[in-house]
Amino acid sequence: MESNKGPHGDPGTTIRYAPWPRPADSPPGATGSPVTLSVNDAPVEVEVDHRTTLLDLLRERLALTGSKKGCDHGQCGACTVLVDGRRVNSCLLLAVAVDGCAVVTVEGLARTEDADGDLHPIQRAFLERDAFQCGYCTPGQLCSAVGMLAEARSGQPSVVTDPDLAADGPVPLTDEEIRERMSGNLCRCGAYPHIVEAVQDVVS
């Protein structure tokens, strides 16, 4: 049941964050702490205000502005990044809480294991399908798609998955599955139909 295949691997059925049960180094009462994390495979050591979200750390401190702030409250998905291989809303993750984790943002997708160093296949598919217009939701859509593909491969169901489907195999990604699984990423330009096509291109 346990697997922890690293930042970009197949997440398996039960996924744990890296075992890291240690108190923060900062003294009691401090309102900031040093954190160490990996961002797009580069080590980052930085002192953060405990209120700082991972999104604001990326955008305002690390100059990684690819991750977007659309709502700042987990309501739009534009801030989606991968933390230890799983897609999450970086606007609701405190940076101090991801101490020790491996973060992949849109800027790092091209260097993940499915990619060729130039573009990740999902990035290429988005270009080919014109799966965006203004581009502001796009990094979140891309990171979400990468995380979602791994989830389906590992057999995680969605609410539209046939309940009788065996729990130990991958979930076939119909258009309906893709739509449901990508629903945490809003796109006001309405590129959804092309996004589904782009994801299907990568599936097949």
Binding site: G66, V106, L119, G135
Partner: peptide, 21 residues
Amino acid sequence: IERREGRAKVTGEALYATEYT
């Protein structure tokens, strides 16, 4: 024709108004 700013948008390089610091 493929949109010219597309690559900048899918790689996160495209800069929006509050991404200049």
